[in-house]
Design a protein around this nucleic acid. Structure first.
Lengths: 337, 337
DNA sequence: TGGGATAATTGAAACGTTATAAATTGGGGT
DNA sequence: ACCCCAATTTATAACGTTTCAATTATCCCA
């Protein structure tokens, strides 16, 4: 109805003709340059909203070198259930209305993890980068720091130079999980860890082992498999442990799949959950509310994680110093009352 | 090692100086223009690979109007478990190496579903669009067809004008699920449907009802809730039905969550799965292999779906006529041997 | 009444690419 | 020797934006 007849997208030139100011002035006015008279700024921005002007991304990008894009490295092989969805939802939520868009780049686990990063840097495909599954001396972090390219990692590193990160306190989670099992009288607790290269594996191990030691109980960290192993292999490893003389009576599970595998291992060996053994699991999706028997879980809010990382990246890109830019999410304390 | 000293990104001008040909010639040569001599083309592309030339996306986009971007409308509210991850993995898999990148745009369910599409069209943010949860007379499809903008929908519509789509044969799934339950002797089958607005809801309903009629058994389609309702509400509705005089002895579940809810409803009312009732569910993630008691499932391969949609969109964008561009995935026939 | 500063605006160039139209070259036929 | 045509190549102009340097208008003070 109120639309203009002309279908052409309005540009700075359109606004220039409309207002009588030069293109350069219009550009400056829209950018809020204080050297432009306040009245002019008002006139111009009024015209801009009236005509529905939107700056052309390609032109701006060509001129400034800024892409208005942030990239997410997506691990296409494994995911904790619901991880990708929640994480991405959080990111897009924050980015909506900022003018930034998010592109998803596959990060194939078998291959060179640096390759996508190199491509992004070299071809100037983004202004910032988000990624997950960070390693202790993650080569991506090293490369990005060298290039002074804005990024936020999901997970900490062990580099001495600080960099922005968001993490979940897996050490606290493991500790709480053990304590909870201990409070239920469990004396021999089992754990399946992610691959050793990931930093959070060390956090889990440390939290787990120190809580076990404090409580003076037994434990076993399942060997030969990781969280990324095929479920059948994990299942086999769990079953194998159950058939020993003193099988575990408690399980700390870092993901939903492991928890279900542990539950299945119990069932399949005739053990009863809640009687012969208990399970504590971390979950990213709401699905576990519906499992029977009920499993005690700690919820990791990955939507909030995505939000935090996107916000932090925006701040970093806008030039904030990296020192304060990190955040450690604490596990919800529902478990240990 | 072999890298050139100069850190500047090579451009057409660099290649021009390097080869002695004009910028225009270099551009044409790289584009494979037959009007350029074959020897020249070789010389130029040799220089291009030697210097690691990569065309600047912003410049190309500004000049041609093509963005080299495809957008995915992501429903941030609900997902079938693993849907987003698998779907996106399939898409990026196909797009890798094509020069296209994928951006994720939130599609908030409560709000205007047209808004993001309008933004993309108006601001020329993408060359093509993918989306899910298609409705019978989906306004997005209408708008995109009017604008002659390339897209592929996940799910069919009831428009008479053909358009590219990829779908899963939910009618066949529902039919097979019912038949499978009937073959186990079940006589009263329950179903929770997605919202009425979605096309696939009608397919599910039709397949379900006609199979039920053919078998001459009873059925109940749960009213008052949809697959998108909060799990607690679905759970309540299922429980309520179980407490009637003749509760269902079979469940067809379209998603993992409903299946777990049905299982929980059975357990919580003292019924035993496999004895008092059976469940057949569709799943997108491998998680159900690990559920005890085991649930019969049909796997919907969403990675393949994502691949198919991306491939189809590329073909559509490259000007292929839309007539043949659609694909109906059949349910794996593991269930009904 | 200037003159020098300040405020406001502007013209023009540039970012790297492609498309249009024009220019150059080399033959081949007469 | 000449002309015409095809085969190649090239100069140039955009695409829409930002920014440098330069211009014009405005004002204050000597």
């Amino acid at each position: 109805m109120g639309d203009d007849i002309q279908g052409d997208k309005p540009t700075l030139r359109t606004l220039s003709q409309e207002t009588g100011f030069a293109v350069a002035t219009v550009s400056r006015a829209l950018a809020g340059d204080p050297r432009i008279a306040a009245t002019t700024r008002e006139t111009v921005s009024a015209a801009a909203t009236r005509l529905g002007y939107v700056p052309d991304r390609a032109a701006r990008r060509l001129r400034t070198g800024r892409t208005q894009v942030i990239s997410l490295l997506l691990n296409t092989q494994h995911e904790f259930l619901g991880f990708t969805h929640e994480f991405l939802s959080g990111i897009t939520e924050v980015l909506a209305g900022t003018g930034y868009s998010v592109t998803v780049v596959p990060d194939s686990p078998g291959e060179d993890r640096l390759a996508p990063v190199r491509t992004i840097l070299r071809n100037n495909l983004a202004d910032g980068l988000l990624f997950t599954r960070t390693e202790a001396f993650d080569p991506r972090v090293r490369l990005l720091m060298e290039a002074d390219f804005p990024f936020v990692s999901h997970g900490r590193t062990e580099f001495t130079t600080p960099h922005p990160w968001v993490d979940y306190d897996n050490e606290a989670f493991a500790r709480q999980a053990v304590q909870h099992l201990v409070s239920k009288g469990r004396r021999r607790i089992s754990l399946v860890l992610p691959g050793d290269q990931f930093t959070f594996t060390q956090h889990l191990r440390y939290g787990f082992l120190s809580a076990v030691r404090e409580a003076g109980i037994d434990c076993e960290i399942v060997t030969g498999v990781t969280l990324d192993s095929p479920p059948t292999e994990i299942a086999a490893a769990l079953m194998q442990r159950r058939s020993t003389a003193n099988p575990p009576d408690g399980y700390v599970c870092v993901g939903e799949v492991t928890a279900l595998l542990a539950l299945a291992a119990l069932t399949d060996t005739g053990a009863v959950h809640g009687v012969d053994a208990d399970i504590v699991a971390k979950r990213a999706s709401p699905i576990f509310d519906n499992i029977r028997p009920r499993i005690d879980t700690v919820f990791e809010d990955l939507r909030a994680t995505g939000r935090a990382m996107a916000e932090m990246l925006l701040r970093r890109m806008h030039g904030e110093p990296q020192e304060g830019l990190n955040r450690l999410f604490q596990p919800s304390t529902d478990l240990c009352g």
